[in-house]
Amino acid sequence: MAIHIKDTVQAVDASAVLGLLPARPRLLGLGEPTHGEDMLLDVRNELFRHLVEEGYRTIAIESDCMMGLIVDDFVTSGTGDLGEVMERGISHGWGASASNRELVRWMRAYNDGRPASEQVRFAGVDGPLEMTGAASPRQAITALRGYLAARVDADLLPCTAETLDRLLGADDRWDDPATMMDPSQSVGRSAEARELRLLADELVALLDEQTPHLMAESSPDEWDRARLYGRTAIGLLRYHFWLADTSPGRMTRLVSVRDSMMAGNLLALAERGPALVHAQNSHLQREKSTMRMGGESLEWWSGGAIAAAHLGEDYAFVATALGTIRHQGVDAPPPESIEGLLYALPEDRCLVDAPLLAIALGDKPPAPRESPWFGYFGLDPAHLAAIDGIVFIKDVPQR
């Protein structure tokens, strides 16, 4: 019997999403095709609230993993003021989003009066990175050394705090945005940076060697954060190393290191799981990600693809696709595109069984939708079989 496109859609809710999957995943990735649209975040917030009823306890977003600790402290213990937490706890300028603010406010209200075992948690899965560069590794590497110094014999530490401070130097040497376009401005391959990479490796090795003792001497949160410090310090130093590179593979290596850092954070979340993860589709998809940057075509494996390779059915990916974002020049999609076929349906919002849609489309999937705006990425029809579901939103209004 032929499958029609209308037979692949249903209402969007948590039980429907979980019903598409062979098993309840520890990591449920919800992608978005563009950033900065609160309507998409409203859908995410609603889905997360319903997933909490299904036993999910963490939401992670595409934001600085170190800054995210500020938000997590606020939602679990009320530390800080909501306004300051939004400014200091969410990167990329997304703390100003009304929908992100509502998410954090709701999480704090939900947790109030609940025991720690029942509380919802917040995490950032991105590194301390922006499109214009990367942060100094100071915060991560000094926090890791401080954690170890408080719990192991001083003779086991590979360096003093003063040594780290000397090697790090001024932070503006590291976070100078000029390094993204000019490798010669980067300190990532200086003698000091090379020594810092060795010391970060030694500190993480000490963390691993002392695992039984450290876990016994730490709360679960302290242990998780120490491991986060280690991953972030090593990842940042590796990222700065490639910022200083002058080879043709420089940009591919940079986007690959970024997503490798994301993958490390995703796998750590899976240990604590189950969690909802929200990021750009290209950071969560199972297939190779592609992008054009500065006239160069880049291909790399996303954080989600790496995590999926490790987790199998404990990882799921639901993409989001859109019909229009008219205030950004994205008008009605071509009728023959995936977005166009879904746009023709009467629903303003629906959940699509992606593998079933692939069957309905047959052996000749439609051509990818070309976006007139660089900030929006259409679905690649060739990826349908590797997507568990699609949240389709017909029109995204301007707010």
Rank of each mutant, 00 (worst) to 15 (best):
G378P: 14
V257F: 11
R292S: 12
E54F: 00
P381K: 00
E339G: 05
D165I: 13
D353L: 01
R138C: 14
P33I: 01
R292E: 15
D395W: 04
A386S: 10
R166M: 12
R369H: 14
S302N: 09
L236K: 01
E87L: 02
D259W: 07
L199M: 11
Q328T: 07
R369L: 12
R197Q: 15
D259C: 14
I387N: 02
Q398P: 02
V318D: 02
Y376I: 15
D64Y: 06
D176F: 10
L361K: 04
L69V: 04
G55Y: 03
T8W: 00
A134T: 05
L237D: 05
A193W: 02
D165W: 11
T58F: 12
R286I: 14
I234H: 07
E84L: 01
A143I: 11
R326T: 12
A316P: 00
H213R: 11
E299N: 09
Q210A: 15
Y229C: 12
P381M: 00
P397H: 03
V352N: 03
V187H: 13
P397N: 00
W94A: 11
F377R: 09
L298E: 10
A367E: 13
S77K: 06
G389Q: 05
R225N: 08
D165N: 10
E222G: 15
E53V: 01
E222F: 12
L345W: 00
D172C: 13
V75A: 05
A135L: 04
I70C: 01
Y343K: 07
W242G: 03
L41E: 00
E37A: 01
S63L: 11
D7G: 02
A134N: 10
D395E: 15
D13K: 09
G80H: 06
L214E: 02
V71S: 01
Y315E: 01
E118R: 11
A307P: 02
A23T: 09
Q398V: 04
A263R: 13
G273Y: 15
G362Y: 08
R227H: 11
P274A: 12
L148G: 14
E192I: 01
T252L: 03
P366T: 11
L267T: 05
G68A: 06
V9G: 03
G169N: 05
D81S: 03
S99F: 00
T160C: 12
R44H: 02
L341H: 06
L156A: 14
Y56R: 04
Q285V: 04
D395I: 03
V71Y: 03
R24M: 10
I5H: 04
R258V: 09
M107N: 02
E54K: 14
L164P: 08
D112N: 12
H4S: 07
Q210R: 14
V120F: 08
G169Q: 07
A233K: 05
L311D: 05
S99H: 02
H310I: 01
V187M: 08
D331T: 08
T290Y: 02
E202S: 09
A358V: 06
